[in-house]
Structures are given as structure tokens and as C-alpha cells.
């Protein structure tokens, strides 16, 4: 067998591909589910923290900044391992899915808070003053005037960070979540052939390419009308 044939047989083996495709497809849906859960909780928690920080209560702000810096500093895999292998010692056993979801949500929350906060502080002071001068309360001003502008401003970095962290779902394979990578690795072990990894790569492209395109669409959609 020539080198080229060996290469094709290893990575593009039709028989293996056909056999393990159903598992990769299962992993594909699991990855989507995990990613959606992470995006929903991570962004919501990040926005909530940014709003709490804008209240300007000193001890609360310090607590938020500390938490955010902690989860930005820790590698996501370390958090997943801590929650999955560490918590049982404290009497709490999380499933691999729950540990991955919680860990990546915390990481996305931390980065999203910083991004939302940057948007809030970058919104001109005059917007606050104009809104407050018409009698809107602090929270009404935040909700109706500041956040709509702040969020629009930060959509590009927010999209990037969300995509980057959602790709971290692959880390779930370490704690026995059979998302795309987990399913592919299992396939490799059973078949002694790396073709399932090729399928996995294709699955990731099929999954994330539309997300990247959607990110671009959102950026255009929310630009100011001029």
C-alpha cells in the first residue's frame, strides 16, 4: 500500500465513516444542546453582573471584579476537572454534561461581563444625563437608553468570545461527555482508524461556520442607521 493510499485509508475510510456516522451525529446534537445552554446562562449571567457592577456599590464591585478575574485566569479544563473530579469529595456528583456546562458558563460569564461593562462605560455620559433629565430612573435609563447602545457596540467582541468558548465544549470529552469530539475519539478506539476524527472535524465546521456567518449578520443588523 502506497503512502497516499495509507493516508486515504486512515482519514477517509468510507466503511469506518459509515459505521460511526450515527454516533457523530448524536454528538453533533449533544454539542448544539451544550453550546446553547452555555450561551444562554453565560451571557445572561455576564449581563447581570455588568448591571450589578453599574450600581457602583463598592464591596459588590470588588466581589464581581474578583470573580470575573478568577474565571478569566483559570484554564477552562481546570475548572471542568475541579467540578467533575473535585466536587464528589464534597458530596456533590455532577454529570459530565453538567460539569462542562457550568464550567464554560462561568468562563463565558466572566468574559461577557467585562465586554458588557466596557460597552456600558463607553456609552457617552451625555446619554445618562439626557435620560435622567427627562425623569427616567437609573434602571430605566440603563434598560432603555444605555444597554441597547452598549450591547450593539460590543456585539463583535461578544460574538468572537462566545464562539471561542462554545468551541470549548470539546473539553467535555475529557469528562465522558459524548459530544462531537468524545464520540469521534470513542470511534477511533473501537475502529483503530482515525476516520471518525475527520467526521468530527467536518461536524465542527458544519456547526460553527453558520455561527460565524450569523455573527457577521448580527453585526450588520445592529449597526446604526445613518
Amino acid at each position: 500500500m502506497s503512502g497516499w493510499d495509507r493516508f486515504l485509508d486512515s482519514f477517509f475510510n468510507a466503511k469506518v465513516a459509515w459505521e460511526y456516522l450515527p454516533r457523530i451525529i448524536d454528538g453533533f446534537w449533544l454539542t448544539i444542546l451544550l453550546a446553547l445552554c452555555i450561551i444562554a446562562t453565560g451571557l445572561a449571567a455576564g449581563l447581570a453582573l455588568a448591571v450589578l457592577r453599574s450600581l457602583g456599590i463598592r464591596p459588590l464591585t470588588w466581589l464581581i471584579v474578583f470573580t470575573v478575574d478568577l474565571f478569566r485566569a483559570l484554564p477552562p479544563l481546570v475548572i471542568i476537572a475541579l467540578l467533575y473530579f473535585g466536587l464528589p469529595a464534597a458530596g456533590l456528583q455532577l454529570s459530565g454534561f453538567a460539569a462542562t456546562w457550568l464550567s464554560l458558563s462561568l468562563v463565558l460569564m466572566a468574559f461577557a461581563e467585562e465586554i458588557f461593562w466596557a460597552g456600558i462605560t463607553a456609552t457617552p455620559r451625555g446619554q445618562w444625563e439626557a435620560a435622567r433629565s427627562t425623569g427616567l430612573s437609573f434602571l430605566q435609563t440603563l434598560g432603555h437608553v444605555i444597554l441597547p447602545q452598549a450591547v450593539r457596540m460590543v456585539i463583535p467582541p461578544l460574538t468572537n468570545r462566545t464562539i471561542a468558548i462554545t468551541k470549548g465544549t470539546a473539553l467535555g470529552s475529557v469528562v465522558a461527555v459524548s459530544e462531537i469530539l468524545g464520540a469521534a475519539q470513542a470511534g477511533v478506539s473501537f475502529s483503530f482508524n482515525p476516520t471518525p476524527l475527520t467526521l468530527g472535524a467536518v461536524a465542527y465546521i458544519v456547526l460553527f461556520f453558520p455561527v460565524v456567518i450569523a455573527g457577521r449578520w448580527i453585526e450588520t443588523r445592529f449597526a446604526w442607521k445613518r
Binding site: 457617552p124 451625555g126 446619554q127 444625563e129 439626557a130 435620560a131 435622567r132 433629565s133 427627562t134 425623569g135 427616567l136 430612573s137 437608553v145 441597547p148 447602545q149 450593539r152 446604526w224
Partner: peptide
């Protein structure tokens, strides 16, 4: 103060209209 401010209109040098 929010109630009182409805009786006091203010116009700023930089307009400060809500762009969205």
C-alpha cells in the same frame, strides 16, 4: 427627583439624542 425633573426641561450642547 425623577418626578421633579419632568417640570425642568434641559437641552444640552451635544444634543444627546438616543441614537438607537
Amino acid at each position: 427627583i425623577n418626578k421633579a425633573r419632568q417640570r425642568i426641561g434641559m437641552v444640552f450642547q451635544s444634543f444627546n439624542l438616543y441614537p438607537h
